[in-house]
């Protein structure tokens, strides 16, 4: 009996955490998403909100755009993050290894808001880069680099980099140097060793990094809002505006569940495509 009590006490924080902060709000949200306003302060059960999502081209288009851009941001982060992780895990030694890792971590000591403002200061028309280009004679008038998809992509990649580098570095570190050397010794060149040995070994790290970065990008609100241009619409902005600006919690909640469903679907697809399982990637990656 006392053993069971101890078990429940140990489990209590987790159950409270899951129950109070995740499950109960989600159930409430699900209920909210399944009703529609019929008059002032009056609601009736309805699937209208989900219907709106699938019939309004604007919502579907915004969603597709958000998903595609997030996938793109994930790929770019992977392409930039892989060599960095490889360098940290396999080439750098001792202190330089630690300090490189720290360098990836430092941006996260300041808030996301400050980091994003940093990019605004750099990229704006009267910003640092524009002024430097003019000073160097490479541009004869101010250059606007802010308020477009490229700036937004830059912000997304920058924000996500650490979450790609950490799992990648961890999996790459677990690859024995001798295995790479054996790859060369048996006739492989840089490309084939990368393709047949390094990447297959790093696959759990690649997938877990990609899942985290994809989720972060998909759920990012600040970066698209601040760095994106006048055409840029991010799905989280739609959710925010339904909840906060329009007071339309019903549609906002439905959007939230559509986002949850679609991102789960895409992650499942990524796992299937790479032949990984969630246990393996999350177990090894983190």
């Amino acid at each position: 009996m006392t053993r069971r009590l101890g078990f429940f006490l140990l489990l209590a924080p987790l159950v409270l955490w899951l129950g109070l902060l995740i499950i109960i709000p989600h159930i409430d949200m699900a209920l909210v998403s399944l009703r529609a306003r019929t008059g002032p302060g009056e609601y009736a059960p309805s699937l209208q909100n989900y219907g709106d999502f699938f019939t309004q081209p604007l919502y579907l288009m915004t969603f597709a755009r958000t998903a595609i851009m997030s996938v793109l941001a994930t790929l770019i982060t992977l392409i930039i993050g892989f060599p960095i992780s490889y360098y940290i895990a396999k080439i750098a030694r001792g202190r330089s290894q630690a300090s490189l890792f720290l360098l990836c971590l430092i941006p996260f000591w300041v808030s996301e808001l400050v980091r994003t403002f940093g990019w605004i200061i750099l990229l704006r028309e009267t910003g640092v880069i524009s002024n430097m280009l003019q000073w160097a004679g490479l541009a004869d008038q101010p250059v606007e680099m802010l308020y477009n998809d490229a700036a937004m992509m830059l912000g997304l990649v920058y924000t996500s980099m650490l979450f790609m580098v950490v799992p990648l570095t961890t999996t790459l570190e677990s690859l024995d140097d001798a295995v790479i050397e054996a790859g060369y010794d048996l006739g492989g060149n840089g490309f084939s060793v990368l393709r047949e040995i390094v990447i297959p070994h790093a696959m759990p790290g690649i997938v877990s990094g990609c899942i985290v970065v994809f989720m972060l990008s998909l759920g990012n609100y600040l970066t698209p809002t601040m760095l994106g241009g006048k055409d840029s619409l991010w799905f989280t902005q739609l959710i925010y505006s339904q909840f906060i600006v329009r007071f339309n919690w019903e549609l906002g909640a439905a959007f939230g569940f559509c986002l949850l469903g679609a991102s789960s679907l895409i992650v499942w697809g990524m796992l299937r495509l790479s032949g990984q399982t969630l246990e393996r990637t999350m177990g090894e990656g983190a």
């Binding site: 790859g183 040995i197 070994h201």
Partner: peptide
């Protein structure tokens, strides 16, 4: 020349 490594370095992914 080919080499048999100390810990053999067989490719675990194959």
């Amino acid at each position: 020349v080919n080499m048999v490594f100390q810990h053999l370095a067989l490719f675990p992914m194959m």
